[in-house]
Design a protein around this nucleic acid. Structure first.
Lengths: 106, 106
DNA sequence: TTAGTTAGTTACTTTATGTAAGTAATTATA
DNA sequence: TATAATTACTTACATAAAGTAACTAACTAA
């Protein structure tokens, strides 16, 4: 019927945010740099997928990975400028959820 | 390590928007009511999954399904007030994509 | 020496999505 | 009066994504 006339940039952004866990990873990083194990345990994602997501987000320039040669080595993930710019989206979703969703069960 | 201290309402909203296609369905419906076959062809989703998503969104009170007893019968999907309230999220993502993504290849 | 931590990876299972064909009700065409 | 076409789906089966659990490597602490 119609051909896809959706803006490819928007479609790409939506595709990224529609991947499971991506939004929550960004949400966590909005509160500051986090370590792998901290992200893993605070949101219940499996290490396998977290590793995959962080790599993708790093490749897209949304997340920055920094190695601190402490002993033991410490690795921190944080948002780049591009990643921080996603904040309004997260904030709007937060507002929506407070307004339209009940806090229990459903 | 940490226990999940993420607001359950926010987590639910994020879970919904993180499902593949959900965001694009809402985006399409923001431009007005649409029929099944129109959604299907305009965004390249399979009928199998579109049917599943529309049912979920209807159950969550985000989408309204209306049957018009024309001949042949016409079925229209549109956003409820709750669904329309998602517009700011979509608009912010649209803005982000225009600012931070290239329009070709990558 | 044994156990524990961090940042992952690997192999395997389960779930989600895609593909293609089918259905039921109706209309249009030869 | 068949035959094909359309809409709004559903069903069966195949492939892709995510979950689970065990493992690795480098190091620390007891």
């Amino acid at each position: 019927m119609d051909q896809s006339v959706i803006c490819p940039r928007f479609e790409k952004a939506m595709g990224m945010m529609s991947q499971r866990w991506t939004g929550l990873v960004i949400y966590q990083l909005l509160t500051g740099p986090k370590r792998f194990c901290s992200l893993e345990s605070s949101m219940g994602i499996s290490g396998r997928v977290l590793s995959e997501r962080l790599k993708d987000l790093e490749n897209q320039g949304i997340v920055k990975r920094e190695v601190f040669p402490d002993t033991p080595v410490r690795i921190e993930y944080s948002l780049t400028e591009k990643g921080l710019a996603l904040q309004p989206i997260v904030k709007e979703l937060e507002k929506w959820s407070q307004t339209w969703l009940a806090n229990d069960s459903d």
